[in-house]
């Protein structure tokens, strides 16, 4: 674990030194938030839209932006760069568990995601969004988003390790968009058409989004929050196991 932490600190330093790679993870989700609210806010007025629980449509859309921010997977792109540049082999030739190499990046991703999510939520608060579940909800909101970031970057790291290609890894990241659009992204699940509702129900991202949304719009509704955490913990365990397996078999 100490090797993973040492490598995690190195990955964090790498993130700090490449703000050009980090800034889009902040600005693009904000852009989507503004555009989506601008397009649909008039359709769903706060006063007469029950699912908004008295808040504006921006509060309903914030989880989409948080998930988008957490799904850039830049750590996996840094990993490919490291494979192509040869430093990855240098690390593999050192006497640390190979799992520490991927774990270090996942630790760094968790920390970065906490920072980016906090900034996004604070910006939301500045523009009138409130966290109905209070300070505990705020912490859970940030934690759930950051854990999703670890799941997604874990998936992208597997692609990076298997393909060793920046182009393939980058393309794999696009899988997030179908997953995002097959969630109750613009309206609650019960307002979707039947085929979309089925697709959303089968899509694990739906439960993460609903948990995030619940934390923003309602008090602590554990029945909605728990499935979101269950999804990230289950997928996180799978991604972690696959990451370790792939790096140990890396040849």
């Amino acid at each position: 674990m100490s090797a993973a932490w040492v490598l995690g600190k190195r990955a964090l330093r790498e993130g700090r030194r490449t703000p050009d790679a980090l800034l889009p993870t902040l600005f693009i989700p904000l852009f989507f938030l503004v555009v989506n609210v601008g397009q649909a806010a008039k359709i769903f007025p706060a006063a007469s839209t029950e699912f908004l629980h008295g808040q504006g449509y921006g509060a309903f859309q914030l989880p989409s932006s948080l998930l988008l921010a957490a799904s850039f997977g830049t750590a996996a792109l840094f990993l490919v760069e490291e494979i192509e540049g040869g430093y990855f082999d240098k690390l593999r030739a050192s006497p640390v568990p190979r799992s520490a190499i991927v774990l270090g990046r996942l630790i760094a991703e968790l920390v970065k995601a906490v920072a980016i999510t906090t900034v996004l939520v604070l910006l939301g608060l500045a523009f009138g969004i409130s966290i109905a579940s209070g300070p505990v909800g705020f912490v859970l909101l940030v934690a759930l988003t950051a854990l999703w970031a670890v799941v997604f970057v874990g998936f992208m790291q597997i692609i990076a390790l298997k393909t060793r290609s920046a182009a393939a890894t980058n393309s794999a990241g696009l899988v997030f968009f179908p997953l995002l659009f097959l969630t109750p992204n613009f309206v609650p699940r019960d307002l979707l058409t039947r085929p979309m509702e089925i697709a959303a129900t089968l899509n694990p991202v739906t439960y993460v989004m609903e948990a995030l949304r619940s934390l923003i719009l309602e008090d602590l509704e554990w029945g909605t929050i728990a499935p979101g955490f269950a999804v990230v913990l289950a997928l996180g365990a799978v991604m972690l196991a696959l990451n370790v397996r792939v790096i140990q078999r890396y040849d």
Binding site: R13, T18, G85, G86, Y87, D89
Partner: peptide, 23 residues
């Protein structure tokens, strides 16, 4: 190895310190 495998974003000192920590 061929093509010096180094992390271009670290300083020389940081790279050596990290390598020493890994050992």
């Amino acid at each position: 190895l061929q093509e010096a495998g180094l992390d271009p974003r670290q300083t020389g000192r940081e790279l050596l310190e990290l390598q020493a920590r890994l050992f």
